[in-house]
Design a protein around this nucleic acid. Sequence first.
DNA 1: TTAGGGTTAG
Length: 698
Amino acid sequence: MALSLPLIPAKTLTATTTITQFPENPKTLNLKQCKTIKELNQIHAHLIKTRLLHNPRIAQTLLESAAIVLPEPMNYAISIFDKLEEPDSSDYNIMIRGFTSKQSANEALILFKEMCERSVQPDEFTFPCILKACSRVHGLKEGMQIHGHVMKSGFGSNGLVQNTLIHLYGNCGEIGVARHVFDAMSERNVITWNSMIAGYTRSGCWEEVVELFRNMIEMDVGFDVVTLVCVLTACGRLADIDLGEWVDEYAEANGLKGNPTLVTSLVDMYAKCDRVETARRLFDQMPQKDVVAWSAMISGYSQANQGREALALFHKMRKTNVEPNEVTMVSVLSSCAVLGALETGEWVHSYIKKKRMKLTVNLGTALVDFYVKCGSLESGIEVFKKMPSRNVLSWTVLIQGLASNGQGKRAIEFFNLMLEENIKPNDVTFLGVLCACNHAGLFDEGRGFLVSMSRDFDIEPRIEHYGSMVDILGRAGLIEEAYQFIKNMPIEPNAVIWRTLLASCKIHKNVEIGEESLQNIVRLEPAHSGDYVLLSNIYASVGRWEDALRVKIQMKDTGVKKTLGCSLIELDGTIHEFFAEDNLHPHSEEIYNATEDMIKQIKLAGYVPNAAEARLDAEEDNKEAYVSYHSEKLAIAFGLIRTSPGTTIRISKNLRVCTDCHNVTKMVSKVFNREIVIRARNRFHHFKDGACSCMDYW
DNA sequence: TTAGGGTTAG
């Protein structure tokens, strides 16, 4: 190995400058007190000059300072190590630890190999050190070889070694093997338990984390902050607020709230347990917030569907000197995706480029997901192609994105490419594939995929897959067959399945099966307003006005509240929110005028308001007016007056698009020569030249 | 000299 000794010239070591600082007997030198490389240089030079470096103990202390105490690169330590006449196991241990702690675990492994070749026997500390190195680089294969070595060397029942083995296997996803080592141990300490719990945490086995924690308490093992951090993570994922609060109280009572990692875990737990305000309070109280704390709070908002708060917090973070990392950006992009905030997300994308952040699999996938969820398919595909590596999730978000945007055939092409690249699809991938078949009208293919997923890929279809199949049949107009399919399903149908059928009944005007569907839905899930609206619309569409009204009244009587329609449009990075008939917007009057204007113009081109739905939605006299001011119409009109001609208008809304709004948007796309993308509750609609990508089925 | 912890997309 190359020698690079940045020696201070001997002449600087004058009695007045340096030597006098040393104690008389250099053996008592505490080299670990060296704070800088310069100090170490001086001592090193002195030891060479006085020949004390030939003393192995002194040399080893120097080595330890260079390799472990100082944060310098390993070159210096290497130069000392290479000069050792006969390095023993403890010298090797120091070097292995140094490499591992300085992120060069591979070099640690090379050195261990060299140690074995030079017949230096590993001691009880060597194995924990080298196993930690394996763990760092997820070197399962190397770790297993060393495990074999451990057994041969007789350290198989050494507690330290076993703890590190648990950590290694847990860290490499071999949680079963980790548990095997754990179960075989005769004595376990807190670290043993924590290593096992940490492994379960890493593998997402949240129930096991809680179970082990309860065992720890029952068996009186004791626990510490590390245990609690893992338990809190599990509480968040399991939405176990009771245990989470218990941990919080324990931490409070035992003065652990000063530990930033623990508080970050509390923030995460509260946010995931739907207590975002509590999380924010804790977050605000943290005196020092690192990137993980910020990311946890941002992702808390993002997951609680509070995208605007997430973005606001991200902007606040940018004013501090804490640099966001890839993980932060994943949550920020997810918020943009949920909000449909294309401009903001595009800005985030350029920010990622400017900061030269690594396009990790997660970050790349989040970007693809963001673009396709904003209906910006080409950008999504471009990012996807540029990703240095992709996993099943990356493919799945792309397939789902293409499918929900009405590009079913293209989605299936990507699915085939995925198989060619030997990426194994999972259950969610198949949801995307079935969705693609649905939107592309690929009826036979859909049926084929449903069979294939269990036969060829060993994935049991879940209720969602059956639901997708019901949708495929319904779209094809095979209502009766869809009904029989539900009856013969191996799983008990839920409200979603019946709702899917109900929606098909609406399109194909099948009153009889529609009625039965609603009965089933009401039985399973009484308080869902959309179903009543759908049935009511079915009656209306076949002219059964009294029945339609009866359903409306029934809806009122049973206390089912209609969800308020809400549409969002982003202009110059600001998100504007509209509710049906609202006048909350500061430019309300202007927007209403624009909406009237828009309707007037499309009427000239032949638009006739949809009487059926208008009639039902209307309160008394102002029948037409009511539908005219559905939230997406207001948002589109606002988009028309605030963007330059030809610009694509992008809206996201919380409900399905109603028939009248769908007609209006088609007409607007033609009359005003605009592409309009509406992201609705269940799918995307791309309007262009008077037609929609959903082919009028949604 | 030795072992364990928090944030991320479908």
